[in-house]
């Protein structure tokens, strides 16, 4: 049987043309379904990227620090604690850009008076509507590092 390349090519193109329209409708409908699928973000949780969320912050140390400050890496301090009362724990409310499921880095600086032995420092963050988390570090005299929450 003799081959006829041009009519065969035209026939294949015609088949593609006929199939294209319903295929496009199907794929568009698929996109619409995925957009309207239920959100995975936790209920009651703030969802906008970078939006500030009220956060309960608790700082505890085995020995009273003289000073402690919390900031976003490279930013100005969001909260500073001058511990004139020499207490070992403090609670505060601050706003932080937190998204459910996203990691948060916080720059933490703390100092203790001379002669304070190596001591534990625990930071607890409880954002409204999101599970809380605590991170504990050990330091002698001072601490200046990035702590990662919600890994």
């Amino acid at each position: 049987m003799k081959s006829r390349p041009i009519p065969e090519l035209l026939f294949i193109l015609l088949l593609f043309g006929v199939a294209w329209f319903p295929l496009k409708r199907l794929t568009d409908a698929g996109a619409a379904v995925s957009l309207s699928a239920p959100s995975l973000r936790p209920p009651d949780a703030p969802g906008d990227a970078g939006k500030s969320v009220p956060v309960f912050l608790r700082i505890k140390s085995a020995h009273a620090p003289e000073r402690c400050a919390v900031s976003l890496p490279g930013g100005e301090p969001l909260w500073t604690w001058d511990n004139t009362a020499a207490v070992t724990s403090i609670d505060a409310r601050i706003d932080l850009p937190i998204r459910p499921g996203a990691v948060l880095d916080l720059a933490v600086r703390a100092t203790w008076s001379g002669g304070t032995p190596e001591t534990a420092l625990t930071l607890t963050l409880e954002p409204d509507g999101i599970e809380g988390e605590s991170v504990t570090v050990w330091a002698r005299g001072s601490f200046d590092d990035i702590l990662t929450f919600f890994r």
Binding site: P42, P43, D44, A45, D128, G129, I130, E131
Partner: peptide, 8 residues
């Protein structure tokens, strides 16, 4: 309970 994390 509004601002307490929910469990679905």
């Amino acid at each position: 309970g509004k601002k307490i994390p929910s469990i679905r």
